[in-house]
Design a protein around this nucleic acid. Structure first.
Lengths: 217, 217, 217, 217
DNA sequence: AATGAATGAGCCTTCATTCAT
DNA sequence: GATGAATGAAGGCTCATTCAT
């Protein structure tokens, strides 16, 4: 005999099923029917509990994003007065782990990754809104590192240089050449990555800064 | 009365139509029907002349890639003996233009970009095969810059750091914040970008090299 | 804590909500869900209190019909001995107002109109049953006007001629050409209409009557 | 072994199947699937040959309308100089037959009727455009009958009075009381109807005209 | 008395591909 | 060599109704 559940139950099942599916196959290759099947529900379940495919995806993505930020906060627990070098490292650490570590993150990392390498126009606004604070934070750190003489364009370019070194790894995840990483990413490997990107970027930023001073003199 | 074409004609029309369409809307949002309509052929033409959507896409992408490489060779015309710094700059110059300059490239740049920001699993192998030589070339340059003490992982990581700074711009194209670029990318802007990424990367690479020496001593 | 209602409350809310909805969008374009939403109840309410969509619609329509008849009785308050010409005018007056005047009728007029211009097979029987007395009344008046020589078919045809001139206006309501009516129907306009249809019909009926006499002679 | 037909074949089958279905059940109660089934085709056939349900319906309706007009032209073959009384009769004859006579009209009459008693917003524009000339014609005849003193409103109202007496019969078709008509409408019955409506209307119109003269004097 | 989660049947549409010509 | 009619599989969604609570 079937028992009518609480409703939260099915909803959560759906959410979980959707997370799994989206993580594995991305938005486009996941069908509503499959989500419902995985959740043991009827095809109409997604449309009942959420508004449709788009809506449940937006929710799933949002959850994943928030979960990732909760587990790996971008400031790494450092106070705003900490030296910007350390805050840069923390920031890189956070970003890399959000993308790579599915150990503690469950599907979250995968979902983020899927959206990143296969962007959907379904959540454009949500995504932009949630990423903005992160960008502001990064910008702040880089601004400090570049010093008072930096202009907006320089800040923007350095920001891109830093962030995309991290994302690069994400894109490549699972397709990394063996001499960089064998098998799944270990914590040690991620730490090594953090180290590399931090040093590389700090050197780059300092160069830009130096060149600025030279110009000004 | 219609002239019996020799088949190359229709084929080329299809190829061109497909290029246009894929450039504008990407793989997934382009329908076979539309390609054929643009080519003035019937819906079956793609399947007849090629094997199907996947096949024509692979071909189109391949052509775009080769065209881009022809117009902007990665070595920038420099001999292999040129100083690695200059060859790095040439390489970055080449990559950036392949992605951003649709003036001389026609659809090619757009197609590459589409695939980059919306990767298809349809051409994975083709893509990997064609990119490999580029990677080898980059690797060579970076190896020289890092000096004899660098290990494979370091080389790989620096390679990623460099390449993905370039790709980042590609991803963002059209969505760059106004203080970085207003309107469409001008040659001057691309040159500035080349400059930034080159300096930033050289500084990063040198840091890695220095740190290696320190270790060894 | 919510007060346990006695059930009449919710029921009435549903009825009112349904009236609104049906008046605005007609039977087919109104969903059970919307009715319940408007009534502040849950989706099952309609099925619980009534039998389903059909049943509540039948009820709503019946109510609207009765309300309209109450406000605009077909005899217009005239005694049965009043001259048939005046009773015809009263009858036309009543019918036109039932259809057009939503000022005093609330949703009733709209609902009647919706059903008229978009007939449902859901309430066929109810409708026929409720309309029958009206028809009898009209028939009586027309019979008197036609005189003793009229046969059933003539009576029936004249009845249709009269009634459908009125309904015509209803169908057209809101889509009347500007030289007939600008904006919403005013009482004066409706009066003018009553006048037109009455005169037109009386002339028609008299003609039929005269022709009958001629035949008989 | 299946033979690929001409294409016109299937298209026509679909058109015919759609006509049947729409005639029997109206737009809303007809499913694309059923049309295709009746035509012995695949569910996608309608979308392939036409654009979708709406489009095939618009076409079917248009065909029905034109067919009806072809078989029963509104001027009944009379020259424009014929006395307006006769032209009115012809017009009524034409309209009534278009609606009632499915003997010579096939599904056309039914389809027109369906749309009339269950209007679709799918073909609003098409419908209005095709009906306009008819309206103009009717207006012309009535204007002549009303004489030079009639104003636009009077013309419009008389037009409605005339037309809707005809349509009334259409609405009622199949539900006519036995003393008006038993069984299916015979040509004789339709002729009698034409006679009734013509006389009734002429009397009405003359009354309006007389009253006008009175006013003017 | 009332709820609301859950269902299932159905609908229209899209699209890559096939096949007879 | 080329066509285009035809297919079938799938997809997202709507909605009246049911059922356990």
């Amino acid at each position: 005999m079937r028992t009518r559940k609480d409703g939260t139950d099915t909803r959560n099942k759906l959410l979980k099923a959707a997370s799994e599916a989206f993580a594995e196959k991305g938005y486009r290759n996941t069908t509503v029917a499959e989500i419902c099947r995985r959740a043991g529900s009827n095809v109409a379940a997604v449309n009942y509990h959420f508004r449709g495919k788009d809506a449940i995806y937006a929710l799933v993505w949002r959850n994943a994003f928030e979960e990732a930020l909760r587990v790996y906060p971008p400031d790494g627990g450092l106070p705003p007065e900490a030296p910007p070098e350390e805050r840069l490292r923390a920031l890189i650490y956070s970003l890399l782990h959000r993308i790579m570590d599915d150990g503690r993150l469950g599907y979250a990392g995968q979902i983020l990754l899927q959206e990143m390498s296969n962007p959907t126009d379904v959540i454009q606004r949500v995504r932009r809104d949630m990423i903005r604070p992160l960008r502001e934070h990064t910008r702040q750190v880089i601004t400090e590192l570049l010093g008072p003489d930096a202009d907006n364009r320089q800040i923007g370019l350095c920001q891109m240089s830093v962030i995309h070194q991290c994302l690069a790894i994400g894109f490549r995840k699972g397709r990394l050449p063996p001499y960089i990483l064998e098998g799944r990413p270990t914590p040690e490997f991620i730490d090594a990555l953090v180290e590399h990107i931090t040093r590389f970027s700090l050197a780059g930023i300092k160069t830009v800064r130096k060149q600025n001073k030279a110009c000004r003199t």
